[in-house]
Amino acid sequence: MSKVAIVRFPPGENRQKVDKNDYRNMLQAGLMALAGTLNLKAAISKYLPGGVVGMKTNCLARKFNSTPLPLAEALADLLVLSGISNENIIVWERTNQELEWGGFPVSQTAPGVRYIGTDSPGIGYSNDFYSSGPVNSLVSRILTEMLTYNINLPVLKDHSVAGLSGGMKNMYGGINNPNKYHDNNCDPFVAHVSNLEPIKKKNRLTILDAVRLQYNGGPGYNSRYVTAYNGLIISDDPVAADRIGLEILEHFRKINNLPTLEKAGRPVRYLKTAEEIGLGTSSLNKIEILAFIMDNSGKAVKGDYI
């Protein structure tokens, strides 16, 4: 049974600006619920027992649909609380420019948390190809050589080709040739990119930002199809995290009179493929959902996720 923790502010509440403290409260609640402990340090250590920890953002869509800086900062603070030093935290992207688009302060050298694009001098991609199914790619040396573990930290959103852009799709930003893998609604490519050895081995957590949800018209920002979901989706199962993300996305499509992604010609088949190759759980009946609503005092109480 896979677990997915969902923590959010009350539905409908206009939380266009979730601050660092809000994110911190949501992350704490979600990580502890997922780990099954009330000890934050123990919860984080369960997934990230030391070493150099990365956070793979998704900043291609510029500031409105990119990983929020306050989320990365809040997560970094919690990692430090768990015993990981600032110098051992790397927020990373495909390019420095994309980090800048997302509002991140590019900084390639310690002290403090580093913000690095794969295109930084001296980094680039692995010398050797990694392969899974039809995918043959070089992988960012940030992941292959600099990180011990990685947290996948994208934005949950609609995608014009893949249907769903969540955690697994975000790892397209960790390889050299993502443009080769968009045929057939990115199936089976999304699954196989996440199955590349360094990605599969080092990704320990997926944290989907779904505070502001682009439920149609993505991956770029399109104000016509944005809603406030106000939540984070957290799991150590990359497939289950995306699967629940899909449920949420489809819910908002439905209540906004939009067809399902399948009917819209963008079926998210790669989730089933990912399950078939052993990456995680796509079947809803095998996913335990731990849903919480944040109250006004910053505490999380059990609730529904949609």
């Binding site: 869509a61 080769k180 968009h182 991956p219």
Partner: peptide, 13 residues
């Protein structure tokens, strides 16, 4: 005949 939405690239990259 790549269909490409905003900020995305075609197959050629």
């Amino acid at each position: 005949h790549c269909r490409v939405t905003d900020l995305e690239r075609g197959y050629c990259g």
